[in-house]
Design a protein around this nucleic acid. Structure first.
Length: 589
RNA sequence: GUGCCCAUAGCUCAGUAGGAUAGAGCAUUAGAUUGCGGAUCUAAAGGUCGGAGGUUCGAAUCCUCUUGGGCACACCA
């Protein structure tokens, strides 16, 4: 569709210029960028629409007159129209594309390009690093991480589909005051227990102690001070503390990795804050020497942000220990040395906007010219119908727990439909349905917006959901299997695009042809919801179509083969798009 | 207090480099299986696009003001 649209833009541009010439209007000529192209509100009106309002002033004529003139001009050169039909609809020029040719071209293109259909080279040669997830090692993953991971994985796939070389990176926040808190609680209450002895997943085990600290600190005023002491000992490399830290981190990280495995999240490189904060300190001290930062009388190191109309910010505490910001400076520098990226995208919640403004500024002041290529892909908060998730009130939705529930419900659904035999592997299928539901639910909202997570809705499998899309895929697969079984019955059939006369068939072909534009737009905007919306539109039209129009039950083998070709193309595009938004494809469900 | 973001149907969301009658799902109501899988499909009902000005031939979309909500402005991450 991109090529078609481009050709039409140029054609309309030429006609507008010709009209300007005939009217003896001198001045700037029209360029193809002046030509506005749209889709008519109702398909009966045509396939492409060009409003004529914008040219009225320059051509000193009413949009109605212009439309009249343009349609006359276009119809003069029939052969340049690629057999399309021009309709003059009031102030609009509408184009009806030649259905047979366009259908044939589109379907063949899809079936030839297969998994390549909808990929582009718009980002070819670009090295893009994508940071996401970034868990703390003091608690298990929660719903917020699931949204983060879903966006991270999806954006990574979308960028790859547009030719970029993508490197997915994680940053484990395994140091800092919060980690010391759970360590302190473990020292106090742990009694040498471990996840195995308690039969608890490692990250949940560690998380329990973080909660304990919180409770304990409310009754003991020196708790916070003791945590700070512990941080100092840790940063000085105290062997006993280091040993405890290592043990607890291993528990947490292995538990978190288990959740990643379940959700299909992976990274090309995992960074650990404990390994990068030192570099951050070095860079800050270098900046201090170069007088980019300053030290106060207590020897705390600060950066002044008045150049960007902000206050000032601590980079190193007076005891020399580092902060979140310090560490992020070091991580960025190391990353660029490891893999000199053209862009680094941080997928991080919107509440940290300020942090990234400061981080990017500090890196720029330190003289790293690549600081210009850092981007914070900020996504909105996930809230519950009752309001914010609050750890103190125990309303935080735990990732593992949610997954378990989703899978259990999927299993129930399969059983209640009596499809245990067909799905072969009940457990695996349930997991895939659960992931399809979850990823679709999390990605259908534009990343920048806050969203409300309604548990009942996220696990609903009817309507606008991931499983609805998976169901389409399964139905089509089933249909294609039946076609293969009876193939000799249709062996005389041939693909004849002129047989695609049903209204929905034409709608489907146009939607299929639009898919490459959607993936490009999704990459440009770093927005997976463009793909989820597209998938739903395609599936909905297709459902309506095959509900009312038999594909295999036709006497004419040509019609069967022709419709099967369309169906195959739909399936191919569904599969291609599924990959971009983390919806597992299922032959059976 | 200052800055940033958001506000579209009862609920959850689409639609924003301005364009023809603002769309879905859920929920509600009424229908469709002698058909390739009913996790489906059809239809009804549901809206002064938070409010007021402005720019424009034309505004959910752009500008100003205003109301309501969220986030940030930590020597937490």
């Amino acid at each position: 569709m991109i090529e078609t649209k481009f050709r039409w833009k140029k054609l309309i541009r030429d006609v507008l210029n010709k009209i300007a010439g005939l009217k003896g209007i001198i001045g700037d000529s029209f360029s193809e960028n002046d030509v506005i192209i749209q889709t008519p509100p109702r398909p009966e009106l045509g396939d492409l629409a060009f409003p004529m309002f914008p040219y009225a002033k320059k051509l000193r004529a009413s949009p109605l007159e212009i439309a009249e003139l343009v349609s006359i001009e276009l119809n003069k050169n029939k052969d340049s129209l690629l057999s399309a039909e021009v309709v003059n609809e009031g102030p609009y020029i509408n184009i009806k594309l030649p259905k047979s040719n366009f259908s044939k071209y589109t379907l063949h293109k899809i079936l030839n390009e297969k998994t390549k259909f909808g990929t582009s080279q718009t980002l070819a040669g670009q090295k893009i690093m994508l940071e996401f997830s970034c868990p703390n090692t003091n608690k298990p993953l929660h719903l917020g991480h699931l949204r983060n991971d879903a966006i991270g994985e999806s954006v990574s796939n979308i960028l790859k589909a547009n030719g970029a070389e993508v490197r997915k990176v994680n940053l484990i926040n395994d140091r800092g005051i919060h980690i010391c808190k759970s360590m302190l609680a473990y020292q106090k209450f742990g009694k040498g227990s471990d996840p195995e002895s308690e039969g608890v997943k490692g990250d949940h085990f560690v998380g329990k102690f973080y909660v304990m600290f919180d409770k304990w600190a409310r009754e003991n005023i020196d708790a916070e001070n003791r945590a700070r002491e512990l941080l100092l000992r840790w940063e000085r490399g105290d062997p006993e503390i280091t040993e405890l830290w290592r043990r607890m981190n291993n528990w947490a990280v292995s538990g978190i990795n288990e959740t990643y495995r379940r959700t299909g999240v992976s990274f090309d490189k995992v960074y650990y804050e404990s390994e990068t904060y030192g570099r951050g300190k070095e860079e800050v001290l270098k900046g201090l020497e170069r007088k980019i930062f300053y030290r106060d009388e207590e020897s705390t190191i600060w950066v002044d942000l008045k150049e960007i109309d902000l206050d000032k910010k601590v980079l190193l505490r007076k005891d020399g220990t580092s902060l979140y910001l310090t560490q992020d400076v070091g991580t960025a520098v190391i990353r660029h040395e490891d893999w000199p990226f053209d862009r680094l995208i941080y997928v991080v919640a919107s509440e940290q906007k300020y942090h990234f403004i400061v981080l990017f500024y500090v890196l720029k002041k330190l003289g790293f010219e690549w600081a210009e290529n850092l981007y914070h892909l900020s996504y909105g908060m996930v809230n519950l119908p009752e309001g914010k998730m609050k750890s103190r009130e125990g309303t935080v939705v735990d990732a593992d727990n949610l997954l378990d529930q989703l899978i259990a419900i999927a299993t129930e659904e399969i059983k209640s439909r009596g499809r245990e035999k067909e799905v072969k592997n009940l457990k695996q299928t349930s997991e895939k349905i659960a992931m399809g539901a979850l990823n679709y639910y999390l990605l259908q909202v534009s990343p920048s917006k806050d969203m409300i997570f309604i548990p009942e809705e996220s696990i609903s499998f009817t309507g606008n959901t991931g499983p609805y899309l998976q169901y389409m895929g399964a139905r089509i697969s089933s249909m294609l299997r039946k076609f293969e079984d009876r193939k000799d019955k249709f062996k005389d059939g041939a693909f004849k695009p002129e047989l695609l006369t049903v209204k929905e068939e034409w709608e489907i072909v146009k939607l299929l042809a639009m898919y490459p534009e959607e993936t490009e737009k999704a990459a440009e905007e770093l927005n997976p919801s463009i793909i989820t919306n597209y998938l739903y539109n395609l599936s909905r039209v297709f459902s309506r179509y095959y509900h009312d129009n038999p594909v295999l039950h036709n006497k004419d083998p040509n019609l069967v083969v022709t419709r099967i070709t369309l169906v195959k193309a739909v399936l191919q595009v569904l599969k291609n798009a599924f990959i971009l938004v983390g919806i597992p494809f299922l032959e059976n469900m």
